[in-house]
Design a protein around this nucleic acid. Structure first.
Lengths: 341, 341
DNA sequence: GTGAAAGCGCTAACAG
DNA sequence: CTGTTAGCGCTTTCAC
């Protein structure tokens, strides 16, 4: 029956608040607040009384009220194209992991490559609902004015937003060089690079730039195809089939992400092209989940773990008031597997 | 220079509030509030003045203050094992999609199969920081007392939490039957079922139950192996190798999820077992991303889209005060592909 | 050691 | 059509 106490007293009562606890414990709300926050001098007796009362009422301090008072939400907004994509799923996971350890919660939004949705998220989140923002979407920043006059700590992932917004990415230039040089070293000559169309700034073209530089240094002709990141599988397959038709001499691909590389491997199999003997492939990303599913794919591994850690670190510094603009590049490494000979 | 107005006035000013707008527009805060919320009668002139002032100050109403006043956060907490897993990534995506359309934001937490972390999330979120919760984690609910006295709308996904908490799942029994019957129909006799160890309630055993029922109906001997959902790839491979060693006669598998099925296919390839000629495989989940990556896998497709929609619908009804307990099962379908002969 | 009063930014109730 | 007042639940001065 003692166990029923809460219900007896509380079944009709809405959520208890501080004054309820204070009344039950026979102290003032201020004292209850002090006990919760362990602030100031308190007698052991008072602490016990208050804690007993809180327990009895199953009291939880109202987070929103504390947020209003403290002017902090301890929440970070994370905007990605979609967490359904393994890359952004892993990124979101890593961000949440580090943010949680730093005391923050995560509000996620899938922009779904919809500029309108991204803007609506920004409008809501910029209204002091979060203490900061991590932006990993792909939409054209110039169509999203909110980024220009945003007055909140922001970190972008692998994307240029504004001079004063720090950006975290893998070392795209090094990755592009690494992939291209490796393919050449292994005998490839007709190497095609596929890249995303969603790049709107020179700083976002570094993989392609590296590929072209390396090709030219070796006296080879660079060929780059642009892929729409949103392409459904069937359109992707048609896309790769077209490349094979237009370039029957191709003996290697460097794709801008692993999902594309995987589609490419399927098309190659359908066309009876042997990998790696006739065709070598290197992707980009190296997300653990994808690697687990398709271990034979060679790829440039982005250190998503370190990238998330860096992003969280930068964000915390921004929140503290530091200036931390600039491009933060993390080292990549090559994962050699069955798609290389 | 007119473009610089904001900065001239606002560079040193912190975030403007309603009184700032009111002062600039020469009205009371209440009127500003009315304009924002389009409530009551307002003269066109006043609306214009206020909107001009809001625009000039780049004013955004403080969300937290509104939340405190309205006693609503329009935010839903979503707890999953990890969004890095394609199944939960897709689930989270779908949930966010429907929640956004219903006006809600999403706070995600990765429980990481850590009971402590799941509890800390619950303690925080139950403190009125969200208007409801979607629980898709795998931890043992009996080790998480918060679920028993949680005083907030909750929906669970494919998992029993408490009698009064509605649960959404695919029709696991039908799915188990469908898979097993299909394998038998296609000539399999020694069919092994692998299932997750993270099932703590009879209601969570329906796939296994269906498998066993069908096997017995056909005079076959059911063999179920339990897998730890968290197993790293190498441990999973060792696990499947052990099964092959212990049951060299096996000619089909029905696995409890596609990731396991994919590892199984890799082990079969390593051992030189031909799929589907020597071994047929049916997985469970049928997430679009996974299907795109491994199209040859046959599987029972869960309608994640419909499940998310249903969960959001139930949650909204709970928030309105309706009683909506019970188990909500959605129909599955078989996807036939290369791993079936 | 503890309490009373003011205020975080907004909106609902009540006037006028 | 618009303003004044009070209050959402908490914390932070400032007293005592």
């Amino acid at each position: 029956m003692a166990m029923k106490l809460d219900e007896d007293e509380g079944i009709t009562m809405s959520q208890p608040k501080m004054t309820d606890v204070a009344k039950l414990a026979g102290v003032s709300p201020t004292t209850v607040s002090r006990v919760i926050n362990r602030r100031g001098y308190l007698s052991a007796k008072t602490i016990n009384k208050v804690e007993a009362a809180m327990h009895q009422l199953n009291y939880r301090p109202n987070t929103v009220a504390r947020q209003l008072q403290s002017q902090k939400t301890m929440t970070i907004g994370v905007l990605v194209p979609t967490v359904a994509n393994p890359f952004f799923g892993e990124l979101t996971f890593q961000l949440e992991h580090y943010l949680f350890n730093a005391g923050f919660k995560v509000l996620v939004g899938n922009a779904e490559n919809d500029i309108g949705k991204e803007r609506r998220y920004l409008q809501q989140l910029l209204a002091r609902q979060v203490d900061g923002l991590v932006i990993a979407t792909h939409n054209h920043q110039q169509q999203i004015p909110e980024y220009q006059n945003a007055n909140l700590p922001i970190v972008s992932i692998d994307r240029y937003l504004r001079a004063t917004i720090p950006n975290v990415s893998s070392d795209n230039y090094a990755g592009g060089r690494l992939a291209t040089e490796e393919l050449i070293r292994r005998g490839a000559v007709h190497i095609i690079h596929t890249d995303s169309v969603e790049r709107f700034n020179k700083r976002d073209y570094l993989r392609q730039q590296a590929y072209q530089d390396v090709m030219r240094e070796h006296g080879l002709t660079p060929v780059t195809y642009k892929i729409d990141f949103n392409s459904r599988p069937d359109r992707l397959q048609a896309f790769f089939n077209r490349i094979f038709d237009e370039h029957p001499e191709v003996d290697a691909f460097f794709t801008s992400n692993d999902m594309d590389a995987i589609q490419l491997l399927q098309v190659a199999r359908q066309r009876g092209i042997a990998v790696p003997d006739q065709l070598q492939v290197i992707g980009y990303d190296g997300v653990p989940t994808t690697t687990q599913i398709v271990p034979e794919l060679s790829t440039i591994v982005q250190p998503l773990d370190e990238m998330a850690k860096t992003a969280v670190d930068l964000l915390q510094r921004e929140i503290r008031g530091d200036q931390v603009a600039g491009s933060h590049k993390l080292p990549v490494k090559l994962r050699v597997s069955g798609s290389l000979r």
